[in-house]
Amino acid sequence: MAELAHMVDVYVMGRHYRVPQGLTILTALEYCGYRVVRGCGCRAGFCGACATVYNFRNDAQLRYDLACQKTVEQDMYLVQIPFFPALKAIYDVDRLEPSGEQVLALYPDIVKCYGCNTCTKSCPQELETMWFMSDALRGDIRQVAVKSFDCVMCGLCAARCPQGLVPYNVALLCRRLYGHYLAPVSQHLEDRIAEIRAGKFDAEMDKLKKMGRGDLRRLYDQREIEPA
């Protein structure tokens, strides 16, 4: 393993270790013998379970990332965040209004945002968190949905907000409002659901279900394929 020839110095919860270059924060912890239970999920950058903060031996500035995606660097101070409490509004998505007033009613604290931009700087997905929070305040639900779409809900924004706001949950509410109330209706979807309910495909389906393997295979090999 040529890439593993070099070792780097890291500090796991303050304790010094030498680990092979090229490991991620998560695999470096495991290399040091730690078996992670909390703070590890999909191991591929999608679930937000391994949100982490780190800094360097001679640089106290905190940085933020996902432990499964960030490669270790010389003199890093590492830790896993097992859990962070965050407020979530409880609602019935069928009984809401897709409006700024609605968002404000469920998350009244969002008016306390004073624009420090710490949430944006702490986002491992590099989303424009503060900007979608101001879209939420203005009631621009669609913009919140668009700008927050790649959110993995790791919660680092909420962990770092000096006002105790929960941008990732506010954004989730807005995306659900958008999907439920504001996205344009798919007529072809409605039509197909009605056709299936009316039994339009039932007779043909029964035929297919009873068809022998050889006939089914012929039909399959001869089927016409729509160009991608």
Binding site: V93, D94, A145, F149, R175, R176, L177, Y178, G179, H180, A183, S186, L189, E190, I193
Partner: peptide, 10 residues
């Protein structure tokens, strides 16, 4: 459709 009604953004 069920997922969209729940709020999924397709």
């Amino acid at each position: 459709r069920w997922l969209e009604t729940l709020g999924v953004n397709w």
